[in-house]
Amino acid sequence: MDAGDIARALTRIAHEILERNKGVHGLALVGIRTGGVYLAHRLVRRIQDIEGATVPIGELDITLYRDDLSLRKEQPKLRKTSVPFDISDKIIVLVDDVLFTGRTIRAAMDGLIDLGRPAEIQLAVLVDRGHRQLPIKASYIGKNLPTSRDEKVQVMLEENGEDDRVVILKA
């Protein structure tokens, strides 16, 4: 995917979110650190352009909810979680860049539920590369990219000083 593909995919996802949820009422976006945060902000801007309404946005660090903490020799660095609104009774759209095994999303859901009781949790991802290890399904997908298990998929973004694109790195 190049910059144009990414832009079009995000626009389509924004429309889909609004269509499915019939507008912005009760809606909030939560970007998963670090890949999903900028994408979540971009989606909020598009929703603003389309509906003329702002949607609350939060940033979630899932490190403390990882299922592999006890196996790692060194604990991974923590980043801050900042969800400055009450998520209870809201429709939360989790946003991430790449959906792979599904473990990150599982951790994100555990993290969210510790913050409150959402009415519904939906998932928006830019890339779904398959190879799920848990029964997790995205609600909104930018592009399905078939990959082999040992390849790496990286989403490069302008906000990080790169040109917008998705790269697949061979093993």
Partner: peptide, 21 residues
């Protein structure tokens, strides 16, 4: 810096994370 994240956790309603489960 790590303590910053936990300060945030202690400010939540549910002051618990599963990190050392």
């Amino acid at each position: 810096e790590t303590a910053d994240s936990f300060k945030e956790v202690t400010g939540r309603e549910i002051k618990k994370v599963p990190a050392l489960r």
